[in-house]
Design a binder for these strands. Sequence first.
DNA 1: GACCGTTCTCAGCTTTTTCTCAGGTTTCGG
DNA 2: CCGAAACCTGAGAAAAAGCTGAGAACGGTC
Lengths: 224, 224
Amino acid sequence: MLVVDDEPGIVEVISMALRHHGFGVDTAATGREALDSVRRWHPHVMVLDVMLPDMEGFEVARRLAAEHAEVPILFLSARDTTADKVRGLTTGGDDYVTKPFSLEELIARLRNILRRTGVAEASSSRLRFADLELDEDTFEVTRDGRAIELTATEFRLLRYLMTNPRRVLTRAQLLDHVWSYDFGGDARVLETYISYLRKKVDAEGPPLLHTVRGVGYTLRLPRE
Amino acid sequence: MLVVDDEPGIVEVISMALRHHGFGVDTAATGREALDSVRRWHPHVMVLDVMLPDMEGFEVARRLAAEHAEVPILFLSARDTTADKVRGLTTGGDDYVTKPFSLEELIARLRNILRRTGVAEASSSRLRFADLELDEDTFEVTRDGRAIELTATEFRLLRYLMTNPRRVLTRAQLLDHVWSYDFGGDARVLETYISYLRKKVDAEGPPLLHTVRGVGYTLRLPRE
DNA sequence: GACCGTTCTCAGCTTTTTCTCAGGTTTCGG
DNA sequence: CCGAAACCTGAGAAAAAGCTGAGAACGGTC
């Protein structure tokens, strides 16, 4: 994967997360560097900021298309770029997320692109743990067959837990992945949302959401 | 499929969308390249701009006919080309769309051509979901047998939803597929059209159009 | 050029979600 | 068993997202 942004902080956050997920990552800070990197390494997918110091992200895409070196692109649009502008230029397979985004969202979109372009084996869009199921395409969540309605944040939180079952995720990890990277608020939101999830997910059946005091939370079956 | 246009942007939009739908795509920017590609690869269908730098699209069709290398063609006519002219020059299994078009429209027409020429298995032109039916040939829509009158945009929107039942389609996806690629306006049209559709489609019977807050819309049966 | 249906824009309103906060409960070391 | 730290949860304010009616703009037709 190639990550292109002129803010070193953003590049760092994203590329660390991607490497952690086992992806090979190259980075670039300008359009020119991005073009060079694509020509040399042919990445499977590119994360591309729409505003770069030397040229617009769209220009990078256009030039690659012109030389038939097409790479699926996930655009990062700035807060103030109107969504409409991005839209018109991303048609046909590319996607975009608006800054500030959550890593969970970014990674879900990237997996989507890889699934679509057939790079990754066409893995199912269903996550499963015990009698809990979550479908990333239909956004349906069920426990023992019964539908559960979740809000967007609850969904992201549960999805992140379900992609890391049995593993204890620290508060920092949860906040970093599920909330947008510039979230500066009270870290206690996490507790609130865990509470919401418990009410919905663990309403019946053995509890799956467990607190690991002093560390974070985990999804696992209760120990007998 | 072969996509022929001298504007790289258009070629990219179309070929990405088609690849995304699982079609194999080759591209060309001039009449000469198009002829070469047809001779070499014998595509099942060709998307052909009527105005190319070296010759008119119709000329490409004529030359192929002359050498009995006929390929069904979907012409792309420029905004200002009169419809009559295009109609007079398209024959047999050919069809045309006027720029700017929506991807939804283009893909529906291509599927039509494939169906007619028997390349794809003769899949039905009727889409069905629950008691809702939509006929792509006659443009008839019924719910529980009762006819529903839709405008062109409402039809495209419903068709796109019906080709992806149960899957949540993001606002961006809906705007990209249902509106023409150069639509730069307010993204809130989508909400307006969802509202129109609801009034017509969900007037009676359980609601099928559902909002997924923070994501988009989906067509599904209500959860009990 | 006037008409008609369609498409798009806009603004006010309603609903839902997100976040903050404060008072309680649990846990655990000493 | 006590106190401190960690955690839980209900209530509600603030923000975001979505709905819809009214009407302007557009495009085709007579």
